[in-house]
Design a protein around this nucleic acid. Sequence first.
RNA 1: AGCCCCGUAGUGCAGCGGUUAGCACAAGAGACUCUGGAUCUCUAGACACCAGUUCGAAUCUGGUCGGGGCUGCCA
Length: 561
Amino acid sequence: MQDAETVSKDFIRDIIDDDLRTNKYQGRVHTRFPPEPNGYLHIGHAKSICLNFGIAQDYKGLCNLRFDDTNPAKEEEEYVQSIKDNVKWLGFDWEDRLFFASDYFQQMYEYAVQLIKAEKAYVDDQTADKIAETRGNLTTPGTNSLYRDRTVQENLDLFEGMKAGVFADGQKVLRAKIDMSHPNLNMRDPIMYRILHATHHNTGDEWCIYPMYDWAHGLEDSIERITHSICTLEFENHRPLYDWFLDALGVYHPQQIEFARLNLTFTVMSKRLLLQLVDEGLVAGWDDPRLPTISGMRRRGYSPSSIRTFCKRIGVAKFNSMVDFEFLEYCVREDLNKTAPRFMGVLRPLKVVLENYPEGRTEELDAVNNPEDPSMGSRKIPFSKVLYIEQDDFMENPPKDFYRLAPGREVRLRYAYFIKCTNVVKKDGKVVELHCTYDPATKGGYAPDGRKVKSTIHWVSADQAVTAEVRLYDRLFTIKDPAGEKGRDFKQFLNPTSLEVLSDCKVEPAVQALKSSDRLQFERLGYFCVDPETTPQHLVFNRTVELRDSWVKKQKASQKT
RNA sequence: AGCCCCGUAGUGCAGCGGUUAGCACAAGAGACUCUGGAUCUCUAGACACCAGUUCGAAUCUGGUCGGGGCUGCCA
């Protein structure tokens, strides 16, 4: 499906329009998505992916996938693979433009030599502590390093030594010579290279000096002839540095543009915090369906197009915002409503015996696969004397606005017959079985006498029912902004009931034809998908999202008053 | 505190000197319905504040207030 819809342009596209008008980049539009492979991508990254690849599509330009792998201490091959998978799954194609910052290490090194020769960079022997100390702070300027005025030759020799591995980690750094009293801290002689005797996922042990983000990123963009380098707001203060390096080198100079990152209610959106949840076993892994990771959402049952639509609709701006989780849910429901085949399944079964239905008889009834899309056809569902219905669909003493099944009440079984409850079987005060009568004249769900029922409920024939496991997910946290509580550990806000496993669910036999990751709707319950752990002997479904439920909403509203 | 960025319904965005300030979600009411789903209709709800420029300001300017970012050899 397409996500085309009329959305007005954002400020970034306005800038691009201007640049096109003034022919700033000879009509080119070239963006990039530059993740660091130090974790799994999340919905916030999806926003950036949709922005960067989306702009390239809109303007018939190009978008590169580039791994910003300048820190071997944190980066791993597993992450590279997952990121590639995620971008592809979201529906974007980098074609032959898969790049790594580490591919440019040699060229960056040569650029650094160029800066040294121009007396714009120097090797500093100070310790990390000393460098931090002499940087000054928000209100007081920093002070110059006493190694700041080394000769070009001395710097060249030392830098070569750094590269050759003659120094230990932290013993020396290469710094840009800018201004230790600059009001922007980032401009106080920022570090360009640090020594790290670590094995890099891509370059192995070839290098023991690694470039810092500020030095590397602009070069990567410049080398790839990026036109618009789009990043998040926290890099705003780094833009002067980005510009300074490229100007000092006199190389091709893209434009950095910053936008606000996505925040979602009831979750956390930081790789560091997500890593904690995974490492401490608080969730089942990076693809735990409760996580806002792309892999987690995929396993939860979100479709790529629903995520793309969401990213498009939230827009892009320059102020920090917090998007309601419900909005994401709205986007999946909207998509799945049109695309997911319907089935019947009972989560918490309540046995129903039809007293007047012949023993041993079975019928095949017609059911529509998707009322929103007739082209999806129909299927047969078995019907017999003993059925299961949802426990929630029966109340012994119902309030008057409950219009499902109750003693003496008649309801419709979807695609089947009208039934009326005649008797309630209880055990230890708990309802364990219902006796009902069915009206043979209402086959297919219509009464020839035109009488109406208040509600239609779902059911499964007991003999043919397949037992399945269903995993119900709820929000991972109990408060809107768990990471925003100052001085408190976000983990104390974890929702203890974010996962509920039901192991005795009864589903109609047709679901056995579904494959891993297939998405579906269990009528009246919500959208689900087949978990990868499913086997023919043991079906496992994940609930993606519930259907909107005005009955539940009503109940909650009345509870409050 | 210094520097930078930003303030439009509950939420997310649009509005680019003249609009009854628009859209979507959420909320409320109703219609329809073999999913209390979907769909349709309607309702309520915002320019942070104060000056100035202008015939005219949500839009331009200055100030006030409020929010965010920055003091890693992370990105």
